[in-house]
Simulated scan of single mutants.
Amino acid sequence: MTQSEVQIIHLKGIINSATSQDLRQRLNELIEKGAKIVLVDFQDVTFMDSSGLGALVLAFKTLRAANRQLVLCSVNEQVRILFELTSMDKVFDIFASQDEFHQAVLSRT
């Protein structure tokens, strides 16, 4: 896996029904570009609700159907609780940081 096959989305602020459509659109653009792995960085996210989670699940299913991956990193406590309550923490690969992701994934090659 090379660095160029990984596309990164940096999210900011609140991910809710008002902003999840934009997230969905950004994810779809990366899927269309043929990214093998889409890394969603939650470093600057303060809150996410179920509509944001829905956008991620939809992208996850689309990518998996195309034999690609959606992975997450830098998830804060509030977002982590949302993933745990919905058992999505068992579905998504979640890394502590981009560095941890790169060490784990890029070292597999």
Rank of each mutant, 00 (worst) to 15 (best):
3 Q>E: 12
3 Q>R: 15
3 Q>N: 13
5 E>M: 10
6 V>I: 15
7 Q>M: 14
8 I>M: 07
9 I>Q: 02
10 H>C: 10
10 H>Q: 15
11 L>E: 02
12 K>T: 12
13 G>D: 07
13 G>A: 08
14 I>K: 15
15 I>A: 00
16 N>A: 08
16 N>K: 10
18 A>F: 13
19 T>Q: 10
19 T>K: 07
19 T>C: 09
20 S>C: 12
20 S>G: 04
20 S>Y: 10
22 D>H: 15
23 L>H: 05
23 L>G: 01
23 L>R: 09
23 L>M: 14
25 Q>V: 13
25 Q>A: 11
25 Q>E: 11
25 Q>Y: 12
27 L>Y: 09
29 E>R: 14
30 L>Y: 14
30 L>S: 10
30 L>M: 12
31 I>D: 04
32 E>V: 15
37 I>Y: 04
38 V>P: 01
39 L>Y: 06
39 L>M: 10
40 V>I: 09
42 F>R: 10
43 Q>C: 09
44 D>P: 01
44 D>F: 12
45 V>A: 07
46 T>K: 10
47 F>W: 13
48 M>H: 09
49 D>S: 06
49 D>G: 10
49 D>R: 11
50 S>R: 03
51 S>G: 05
52 G>M: 05
52 G>A: 03
53 L>H: 01
53 L>T: 00
55 A>S: 05
55 A>K: 07
55 A>G: 04
56 L>K: 08
56 L>C: 07
56 L>N: 01
57 V>T: 01
59 A>E: 08
59 A>M: 05
59 A>P: 07
60 F>N: 00
62 T>Q: 12
63 L>H: 09
63 L>N: 04
63 L>Y: 04
64 R>E: 02
65 A>L: 13
65 A>N: 15
66 A>E: 04
66 A>F: 03
66 A>D: 09
69 Q>V: 02
69 Q>E: 11
70 L>F: 08
70 L>V: 14
73 C>L: 07
74 S>L: 08
75 V>P: 11
75 V>Y: 05
75 V>F: 01
76 N>Y: 07
77 E>I: 14
78 Q>F: 10
78 Q>H: 15
78 Q>K: 15
79 V>R: 06
80 R>L: 06
81 I>K: 15
81 I>C: 08
83 F>A: 05
83 F>P: 05
86 T>Q: 02
87 S>C: 03
88 M>D: 07
89 D>G: 01
91 V>C: 00
91 V>D: 00
92 F>D: 01
92 F>Y: 01
93 D>N: 09
93 D>M: 12
93 D>V: 03
94 I>H: 04
94 I>V: 12
95 F>C: 02
96 A>L: 12
96 A>C: 03
98 Q>Y: 06
98 Q>G: 10
98 Q>R: 15
98 Q>N: 13
99 D>L: 11
99 D>A: 04
100 E>C: 03
101 F>A: 02
101 F>Q: 00
102 H>D: 05
102 H>W: 11
105 V>C: 01
105 V>P: 00
106 L>W: 03
107 S>N: 11
108 R>M: 07
109 T>N: 14
